[in-house]
């Protein structure tokens, strides 16, 4: 365990909590891509099956359970509790457009996902400021994991191509978002809208 990974996991947790609280407090999931939250729940389920097969550490087990529980809780908020506020027509990305390349990559990689709020920003042209903070922490979690892999390579001589390649692919998707985030949300109007 190193500072990059620990802070990365905590950023991931913060992102999940921001999203959950945003939906819970505002009683609305406008601007949230329900499909991407379903995809996250699927990813956590498929990847964390090792909860039942191998014990790594208390931290590892607890965090996986927390991620799984929060992913399903968020999906149930979107599709059950606040279903009426879910604007599915703007959540219009075609899952197959993502799954086909990911399925192709799956022969090389285990998974690569990007929250489709990024996609919705390009489509709707804007995102509520709280959603951008959610995406910021998600992107920061991915970026910190790059530091984790650099650290583990140089300090522990550990390398895992599957994790690194899929992690780099994911992080690349955040670059344009980070640019928009720092130029608009932090410096500008507090709300992100495309030029």
């Amino acid at each position: 365990m190193n500072i990059f990974r620990l802070s990365g996991d905590l950023c991931h947790l913060v992102a999940i909590i921001i999203l959950f609280l945003k939906i819970w407090k505002s009683k609305s999931c406008a601007g949230i891509s329900g499909k991407s939250q379903v995809l996250f729940a699927v990813v956590f389920t498929t990847r964390y099956l090792d909860l039942f097969t191998s014990f790594i550490s208390i931290y590892n087990t607890v965090m996986k359970v927390v991620y799984l529980a929060s992913a399903y809780a968020t999906v149930s908020l979107i599709y059950l509790r606040f279903r009426s506020t879910f604007d599915s027509e703007s959540d219009s990305f075609r899952v197959e457009f993502l799954l086909v390349p990911v399925a192709g990559l799956s022969f090389l990689e285990n998974y690569a996902f990007t929250p489709l709020e990024l996609f919705m920003i390009t489509k709707t042209g804007e995102a509520a400021s709280i959603t951008t903070h959610y995406l910021f922490f998600l992107g920061l979690y991915r970026a910190l994991y790059l530091g984790n892999w650099l650290w583990r390579y140089h300090v522990e001589e550990f390398f895992d191509q599957i994790a690194v390649v899929s992690g780099v692919v994911q992080t690349i998707f955040y670059c344009d978002f980070f640019y928009l985030y720092f130029t608009r949300v932090i410096r500008g109007s507090g709300k992100m809208s495309l030029p």
């Binding site: 996991d9 583990r152 390579y153 522990e156 001589e157 895992d160 994790a163």
Partner: peptide
């Protein structure tokens, strides 16, 4: 390829 230890990342 993977070497050098356990992939214990989340």
């Amino acid at each position: 390829c993977s070497f050098g230890g356990q992939k214990d990342e989340l």
